[in-house]
Design a protein around this nucleic acid. Sequence first.
DNA 1: GCCCAGGATCACC
DNA 2: GGTGATCCTGGG
Length: 284
Amino acid sequence: MDVAYENGAALVRTGCFEPRHIFENGQAFRFFPCGANAYEGVAHGRYLRVEKVPEGARLYPCTQQDFERVWKRYFDLERDYAALFSDCGDSVLKQGMQYGCGLRLLNQEPFETLISFIVSANNHVKRIRGILRRICALYGEPFSFEGKTWHRFPAPAILAGLSEEALGECGSGYRAPYIKGAARMAAEGFSLEALRGMGYADAKKELQRLPGVGPKVADCVLLFSLGFYDAFPADVWVRRVLREQYGFTGNDRQIYEFARKRFGPYAGIAQQYLFFWKRENSKS
DNA sequence: GCCCAGGATCACC
DNA sequence: GGTGATCCTGGG
């Protein structure tokens, strides 16, 4: 991976970068298409436009300092995805990796990820996007970039201070008290960052102390924001893949064990590619 | 108008 | 320890 800077943008030379695969696979909900092969949105408190170009990816605006401090890690650009499972001998996974080529796992802000996946419970991507958009538009700090107004994700204390009615009006439904409760715990000292130093099992157990956080949501937060690449979020789609492609019929508790044994320490990355493949091939 | 998809929680065994 | 009813709402 090598990077050139021009006209306020970073040009990242990489063969593995497909904006649609990155932003349409249910890991992030606040980036939207803007033209061919491009997405724009707010992450880590800044606006970013991401475009696929012949050399790889173009990030704008992005100085060398922005890249080194924020976006390199956000897009997990130092990892060679093509090499991850190249000698695993699993034809299903290999096919999935090929199909989803260019999908990268984002390193998102832990609190935004936590709230996003509490909202995701028993919910669909389209509605999740709408709920988060309204929450940010109403309660996130606004800033302007090139004449347009954008919103940062609200801080824990802001969401903790809202009424359940106010959160309900954003469309969160019965999840409103979960959002408020989890935000309050985060505001009052529950440290998501501190989970980085724990083992997977302890970190997951700790996360599940938060209201609205069960096994699936905990795995999503660990995988999408805290660098636990062995976390294996077991949603209905991945369960379908495991059943149909691997003949796995175990219960929820056995899924993680199966995934870890089958896919290794990067099981979570395998999960994303299998999920993407299954979703894309189930659209009617 | 009806029914479905989608995880966490709670009551219950 | 596991099972099943319930929660909300956009979209078919």
